[in-house]
């Protein structure tokens, strides 16, 4: 028996349609709560710092990825970081063209593992890897403890 590719227009094949009708509600977790509560209330980024081996991580964890010690110390990083890399996207995940290109980047903080992936303001020509960028936040009253409390990062 071998595969018989006798029908080559797939809409001619019989099929049954279905779906997985679930939705999800994710809690932020203990580390996530610390980050987003601080973002919402104080307008700053929090990282975890391992008192055993010194590794700092954003987003903050409750454990050190490196040595597995429980985290006891959380530090503020403010809202300024460095642009580690960036890209310009023209299509959404379904292949529809955006009205205007989206510029996205990864922002890192000196001496800290990890980073924040977010929208970057400005056009591609104005951006350089390593440049200082600062988060533009929603007004405090409008923040809800989600990643969209950050509107974007812009040139510092």
């Amino acid at each position: 028996m071998s595969f018989k590719e006798t029908i080559n227009v797939n809409t001619m094949l019989g099929y049954f349609e279905g779906e997985i009708p679930v939705n999800y509600q994710y809690t932020l977790g203990v580390g996530g709560n610390k980050f987003f509560t601080a973002l919402m209330e104080k307008g700053e980024f929090i990282a975890s710092e391992c008192t055993a081996c010194g590794v700092k991580t954003i987003y903050p964890l409750i454990y050190c990825e490196e040595c597995f010690a429980p985290i006891e110390k959380y530090i503020s990083l403010g809202v300024e970081g460095e642009l580690y890399s960036f890209t310009e996207c023209h299509y959404d995940y379904q292949g529809n063209k955006y009205d205007k290109p989206h510029v996205l980047g990864l922002v890192r903080f000196p001496g800290v593992r990890g980073g924040i992936f977010h929208r970057i303001a400005g056009n591609m020509d104005s951006l350089r890897i390593g440049m200082k960028v600062v988060a533009k936040l929603k007004p405090k009253a409008e923040r809800s403890g989600t990643i969209d409390d950050i509107i974007c990062f812009e040139t510092a």
């Binding site: 018989k4 797939n10 094949l13 019989g14 099929y15 049954f16 349609e17 279905g18 779906e19 997985i20 679930v22 939705n23 999800y24 509600q25 994710y26 809690t27 932020l28 709560n33 987003f36 509560t37 809800s144 403890g145 989600t146």
Partner: peptide, 25 residues
């Protein structure tokens, strides 16, 4: 506490069309 907790909500749209295949066809 769960009601009050900050939660991220996601409604995926997972739709499929499964081919019948040869025998089931």
């Amino acid at each position: 506490e769960y009601e009050r907790a900050i939660k991220i909500k996601w409604q995926p749209k997972l739709q499929y069309a499964w081919d019948n295949g040869i025998a089931i066809g």
